[in-house]
């Protein structure tokens, strides 16, 4: 069991404590911004400053911490066992992300299957219809129970325009990153670079389309975060997905830079694989969104 005997236990590190301070300051600042916005209408410079200091610290930490992990990996400190640890870490992290999305999908299903029909007077629990006389249960919910508090959207985004295009883009990007991975394993660096770059371009186009869709929803359709439960679930699900696409794109870009610098070997490239797992996960979440948010 020679693999176990060389298990790498890092020495003391300053990064975790910097990460803690960064995250604490960032979260505190963000909460201050939100509280002042909600209570007084406009967050001051001070609140934003605290938040930005936290962000800066976090970015500094990310460069430093990942930087030292990359250096350790490239200097051969990690053996096969360490590699398994990283794989488990990434796998379970993605599982935790799946559960995060599950909470929002659960809210969507509950709203559609139970809340809205009950509010409309259906079944055993239909007595809640008495709260808002004349409310009709429909989905997408264009007319909210109390339209004064929550003015409903005029229309919602149909699935067969931009969303279909976005589906094609993301599925294609999952294919291109797999092609890149095969190129990496075959030692074909030129092909690897091209297909990685293609993946990133597809991701960016997705993001641009998504931004356009949001602008259309807010500007033309009156579909907003505050247009009732449809807008709430729509924007939280697609918004968190979009945030993950942005993060995924950043990760892919870092991977491309590392590829250009000559990192990764055909048989040892966990960083790349982790990025590709993450990308597939983002893709699968989108398929769920496309079916349950846009189509059905």
């Amino acid at each position: 069991m020679s693999a176990e005997q060389s298990y790498y236990v890092p020495e003391q590190s300053k990064w975790p404590i910097i990460a803690t301070v960064g995250m604490g300051v960032m979260m505190y600042g963000l909460a201050s911004v939100m509280v002042t916005n909600t209570q007084e209408g406009q967050a001051g410079f001070g609140d934003w400053l605290v938040f930005l200091v936290g962000v800066a610290l976090t970015i500094y930490m990310l460069f430093g911490w990942f930087g030292s992990v990359v250096r350790e990996s490239r200097s051969g400190l990690y053996d096969a066992q360490m590699d398994r640890t990283f794989r488990m870490g990434m796998g379970w992290f993605i599982f935790s992300e799946v559960m995060f999305f599950a909470a929002f999908f659960g809210a969507l299903f509950y709203a559609r299957v139970f809340i809205v029909p009950w509010l409309g007077g259906e079944g055993d629990k239909g007595s809640s219809a008495m709260l808002w006389d004349g409310f009709e249960a429909t989905w997408p919910l264009l007319q909210n129970p109390d339209p004064e508090a929550y003015p409903g959207p005029k229309e919602v985004i149909g699935p067969w325009g931009l969303p279909l295009l976005n589906t094609i883009l993301l599925v294609t990007s999952s294919v291109t990153i797999t092609v890149a991975h095969h190129a990496l394993k075959a030692g074909n660096r030129a092909k690897l670079k091209i297909w990685m770059a293609a993946t990133i371009v597809l991701a960016l186009v997705f993001l641009i389309f998504q931004a356009e869709e949001y602008a259309h929803a807010y500007g033309d359709l009156g579909l907003t975060l505050s247009s009732g439960i449809y807008g709430s679930t729509f924007f939280m699900l697609t918004g968190f997905h979009g945030a993950h696409v942005i993060l995924g794109t950043i990760i892919l870009t870092v991977m491309l830079i590392r590829i250009l610098k000559g990192h990764f070997e055909p048989e040892k490239h966990f960083g790349f694989e982790a990025a590709s797992w993450y990308w597939h996960f983002v893709d699968v979440v989108w398929l769920g969104l496309f079916v349950f948010v846009y189509i059905i």
């Binding site: 809210a107 709203a111 809340i115 909210n144 109390d146 975060l225 505050s226 009732g228 709430s232 679930t233």
Partner: peptide, 25 residues
């Protein structure tokens, strides 16, 4: 994390996850 995020949005950004007036519960 999901449920406190829904709270956060209801409090600060006008969503209606937990407000029946907007179709939530």
């Amino acid at each position: 994390a999901g449920v406190v995020t829904m709270m956060l949005m209801d409090i600060n950004f006008g969503t209606s996850f937990f407000d029946a007036a907007g179709g939530g519960d």
